[in-house]
Amino acid sequence: MKSSAGWLAALAACWVMHFFVQDYSRSYYFLIFLYAGINIVLAVSLNLVNGVTGQFSMGHAGFMSIGGYVSCYLITQLFQRSPALFEGPLSMPIFAGALVLGGIAAAIAGYLVGLPSLRLKGDYLAIVTLGFGEIIRVILLNVDAVGGARGLGGIPNLTSFGVVYTCVIVTVFCVWRIIRSAQGRALLAVREDEIAASAMGVNTTRSKVSAFVIGAFFAGIAGGLFGSWLTVLTPQTFDFNKSFEIIIMVVLGGMGSVSGSIVAAIFLTIIREALRPLQDITKLDFRMIIYSLMLIVLMLTKPRGLFGSRELVKEKELA
């Protein structure tokens, strides 16, 4: 029981912070902080699939878009019917409910994508998940109920510091506990050697699919946070470049390292903004070039990412 205390303290600290920073919710640094939170959720959830289980998914933006569209569609509809609901204290539980529903929708999609992963490995799986993400985008473009190319607009802005970092804490907590559970050992075993794992009695099929489902669930939640913050969602936002962005975070942090993903997500969110002044000097936006070069050089020099599969904190302290 003692171990839960740390997490609860973090949650409490997050809400205390929430009331402190609320007044600055339109400031630039606040925004970076918020993006960092959403990126942490994305990176940590993808890490469960790509890092821990060793499957290579390139369709995380697809799951994100499903979750984002479902939860934002729900709150938008509700907002149009009875805007009064969103004035009072009820807005938080409603948003939480919508986020979870979005997450579940994404998880169902994750289940459908997880199934082919039973047969496919490595590069083939990568391209199938990439294709899946694109298919979702094309479908969203064709659904008039969510605006098609015009996007889903008029989403009430319910994303706040507290909500985002509650999601971060919940995601990190879940993934951390999963990795350290029997189920998590099974996932690691699948990554290291699928044949041996299955010989040791690990249900590899179930392990892989559950990794996909859980990863997709949290990606969907991140999508909801993202959409409600921007108040507009367009399908174009979720093209495969978005998936690559998340992959870069996971790879930089280290495959299988939760703290690595967190650090990398924060680092890459900040660096993206910190490099902006460079544009004043060069007159050209070199950020994506730097991004891609970083990826190549990192793979050549530190193929396991900055942290490898190690964690920043000792297992005992948080277990």
Binding site: Y35, W229, T234, T237, E273
Partner: peptide, 13 residues
């Protein structure tokens, strides 16, 4: 970069 989230950050900055 033709991205919504980047535009929000750029705008705020």
């Amino acid at each position: 970069q033709s991205k919504q989230d980047e535009a929000a950050a750029a705008m705020t900055k």
